[in-house]
Design a protein around this nucleic acid. Sequence first.
DNA 1: CAGCTTCACTGGTCTGACCACTCGCTACTA
DNA 2: TAGTAGCGAGTGGTCAGACCAGTGAAGCTG
Lengths: 203, 203
Amino acid sequence: MITTMAGTVKVYEEVLKEIKNYIHNNHLSPGDKLPSERELAEELTAGRSSVREALRAMELLGLIETRRGEGTFLRSYRPFHTVELLSTFILQESTTKKDLLVSKKIIEKEATKLAFSKFEQEHITQLESILNQEVDAQQRHYLFFMSIFGHAENYLLQKIWQLMEEFSNAIGVNLYDNGFYYRLLQVLKNREYSKIESVFANY
Amino acid sequence: MITTMAGTVKVYEEVLKEIKNYIHNNHLSPGDKLPSERELAEELTAGRSSVREALRAMELLGLIETRRGEGTFLRSYRPFHTVELLSTFILQESTTKKDLLVSKKIIEKEATKLAFSKFEQEHITQLESILNQEVDAQQRHYLFFMSIFGHAENYLLQKIWQLMEEFSNAIGVNLYDNGFYYRLLQVLKNREYSKIESVFANY
DNA sequence: CAGCTTCACTGGTCTGACCACTCGCTACTA
DNA sequence: TAGTAGCGAGTGGTCAGACCAGTGAAGCTG
């Protein structure tokens, strides 16, 4: 007699589904409050810990926000948190340093291109002042591209880049020399979009 | 005196980080076994429930697999069921969606460029046969670029792309039309590296 | 009325107790 | 001896209950 009972559905998965239904049936929107953990547990005839497991998973996915003393709130979903978390695992999996550096450079290059049309004189000045700051190379690189991301208007790409930046700092690689930043700045000043590729291509 | 203690990190988040470290430090690969919940709890000086919250969240993300009576195992990342869950929650914020699509396109474009030098006739043929398959647009897009990633030799970028692809499928957007693939194929056939940008630029 | 205290409620965490299941070892049987 | 039934340790699944730590509003105090 082989039963193995692989078909048993875990309570927390069931709870998850119920919460989903609850949100749907009550037409909840981001910012709206969910029932308290204790209420949910009683309502769904489940233990509070099971409810919490479901809620914690949802929180990690960025679907809800919990505030101690206040409650649990639906939140507008942004894949960033998830992508960020998963990227962490994926990054740890991929042992190849080269993959990381190549990918990071691609993002930096494309972010520059995204930001290009929005660049004005004051932004150029801002970038210049960053380069003149008395900070170490890592810090300067970070500030320089964060400023660029400020105009690229792609939060997702920025998050991924920040993560990659952290990892490459941990690895301790310095991809660019001083000349790079000034060459890139020059290209931006002269508004030569087509030359952005070539500035990066040399590294 | 305002403290509010918003800086308190939740235990389960800490546990998550520790598990991540454990995996990394012990060079665990998919299929390897993690310590039991009770061991982890004792090791990290946390309650078993907190450990479980972290593990459940990881399980929902598809990072681990748990087998009752056996243990918890690391698993090669497969976002499938996660994405299905997320898709029902996703509130299609235009900016978020746009970020995702723009980022995905960038990666697809750059992957194509990375793969360019390695393309040979047989690869072109492979891409053509994918386009001729009787599958839906999503599936075809996936296969097409997975084939390209096969030559791009950047596993990290590929992983990130797969993740984005899952998300955009969940959102249900179809960025490219049929002509796109053939135009791209044509460019690859003629070995016109510089035209890759423009093929993507029109979408 | 302003300011403070109290208290009910909410999430955060831990503990201990069972249950259901897996697997290996033991002891019994053929 | 060989094979097998079953016991027991270990593991995840779940629950109940306890206590802590914030929040906010009602109610008290001056």
